[in-house]
């Protein structure tokens, strides 16, 4: 079965992103697929390459990236929600004349149409609140 996950919570701020990771791993381990993980509202902060948690705490960014690599996961960050909150790709940073980019490898910025499309084609959509 094909799942889409919507993540609303900022990492290391509320539990939602960590819970979404647990769900994602379980779904993939039981033979299901994940069509897309869509990061919205404060959830866009999950895509920040600059997160630097202490070594004795879980590394949520690293966990997303390793899942992305092992399962070719589609990690889509809402571009409008990201811009407001200061999460920019190289091209967006240039276009908006901002001093730096911080979108992590493995994540893609895209519009809300990607959420609509994922809801339309996935078998199940599950939201992880902030």
């Amino acid at each position: 079965m094909q799942f889409t996950l919507v993540v609303y919570g900022a990492p290391h701020s509320s539990e939602g992103a960590a819970t979404a990771l647990r769900f994602a791993r379980a779904a993939l381990a039981t033979g299901h697929s994940i069509y897309r993980v869509f990061f919205y509202a404060d959830g866009v902060h999950n895509g920040s390459a600059l997160a630097a948690p202490p070594q004795d705490e879980q590394d949520l960014l690293g966990q997303w990236q390793s899942l992305q690599q092992s399962h070719a996961l589609d990690l889509t960050v809402c571009i409008a929600a990201a811009q407001r909150r200061g999460l920019l790709s190289e091209s967006e940073a240039n276009r908006l004349e901002k001093p730096s980019a911080n979108l992590a490898d493995g994540f893609t910025l895209a519009g809300l149409g990607q959420l609509a499309e994922a809801a339309a084609v996935s078998d199940r959509l599950i939201s992880f609140g902030g």
Binding site: Y8, Y40, A41, D42, A80, A81, G111, L112, G113, L115, A116, E117, A119, A120
Partner: peptide, 19 residues
């Protein structure tokens, strides 16, 4: 909470995509 406004934006985006 931003979710009220961002929810509306998502609703309009879905509608614009014929969903």
């Amino acid at each position: 909470n931003a979710l009220a406004r961002e929810g509306l934006e998502a609703i309009l985006a879905c509608a614009a995509m014929d969903q």
